[in-house]
């Protein structure tokens, strides 16, 4: 019993370490990728090709003064970044990196992940409201409208996968793709998922809640120091989560020849991460009403149609 508890705690700690390292790498990758898109070099000074830049930045961020403005709702202001990070973190407790590497294999894993990641919206709203700042408030409003709307096409786009695999267990879903990754039978579903997920994670061109040029920074405008780094961390953790989920649901997870499963999994995830970065550094940003009409008038009907056709096909097969 006690040994089991210790092992569980160790696993949780291991996930925490993994997340931190992943975010460090993701931020570094984003800066390098964006730099090369923009005919720059990006970080070059700290370490080999700026490899240690992120560690220096983290130390700087953690040592910065943590300012709590005078007029904020102190308790909510304090909880919001923690909630944001926790909701991002919880997803990893059931995310399988390979058949063996998983903290807790839940039989409703997919439902659980979709559930906890949508907790993020609560924290963004809390941050926006508690900051007592009009820009932050607008950012909070925008994020609620956006994330809740995109939740629907997101879930609808993964349902066909669940129907085909016959399970909500992520490991079972991957096993079901032994012969054929679901992206080949669900290409539309994959695109819908990636679009909706990018919007869900506030990635450009859907980064409207924190639109820097309009809302300065949106919901996190009053945050600094370690609280700001929580939001920052959560943003990149979420990006990894949606790409990992896409790899599991559509790209056959860790399956692949020769290389060990974890490597395959990471290759697929980082490929998707690269695609998201590519999109971010190419496109302008949508306007909030265009974003909403895109969701309700294009994504949702498409997702419903995809869901219906997949269902019919499965029944008639």
């Amino acid at each position: 019993m006690i040994i089991g508890l210790i092992i569980l705690l160790l696993k949780i700690a291991a996930v925490l370490v993994f997340i931190s390292l992943t975010v460090l790498f993701l931020v570094y990758a984003e800066r390098k990728v964006s730099a090369h898109f923009q005919v720059r070099y990006g970080p070059m000074r700290v370490g080999w090709h700026g490899g240690l830049q992120m560690i220096a930045d983290t130390i700087k961020l953690l040592l910065k003064e943590d300012i709590t403005p005078k007029d904020v709702d102190k308790l909510v202001f304090f909880i919001a970044p923690i909630l944001c990070f926790v909701s991002a973190y919880l997803a990893y407790l059931t995310l399988p990196f390979s058949p063996q590497i998983v903290v807790k294999n839940l039989n409703i894993g997919l439902l659980y992940i979709l559930g906890v990641t949508s907790l993020t919206v609560l924290s963004l709203m809390m941050a926006g409201w508690a900051s007592n700042n009009k820009y932050a408030l607008l950012g909070g409003f925008r994020s609620v409208a956006q994330i809740i709307s995109y939740e629907i096409p997101l879930v609808l786009s993964v349902l066909p996968v669940v129907m085909m695999a016959g399970s909500l267990n992520l490991i079972t879903i991957v096993e079901a793709q032994k012969s054929l990754p679901f992206i080949l039978v669900q290409p539309l579903g994959f695109l819908l998922y990636l679009t909706a997920a990018a919007a869900e994670a506030n990635r450009a061109p859907f980064d409207i809640p924190e639109a820097e040029q309009e809302l300065v920074a949106g919901y996190n405008v009053e945050y600094s120091g370690i609280k700001f780094s929580m939001f920052f961390l959560a943003e990149y953790v979420n990006m990894f989560t949606i790409c990992a989920l896409a790899a599991i649901l559509f790209l056959g997870g860790w399956q692949g020849p020769i290389l060990p499963p974890v490597i395959w999994f990471l290759i697929k995830v980082y490929l998707l991460v690269f695609v998201l970065m590519w999109v971010r550094w190419t496109f302008p940003r949508l306007r909030i009403d265009q974003l909403m009409s895109f969701c309700w008038k294009i994504l949702l009907p498409l997702a419903l149609a995809n869901f219906l056709i997949s269902g019919l096909w499965l029944v008639l097969k």
């Binding site: 923009q38 005919v39 980064d207 639109a211 040029q213």
Partner: peptide, 16 residues
């Protein structure tokens, strides 16, 4: 202007 619309990359191209 492209930066105002959220497209960061053209900004760097122009500055080049």
């Amino acid at each position: 202007f492209s930066l105002d619309l959220g497209a960061v990359t053209p900004f760097l191209y122009c500055f080049r």
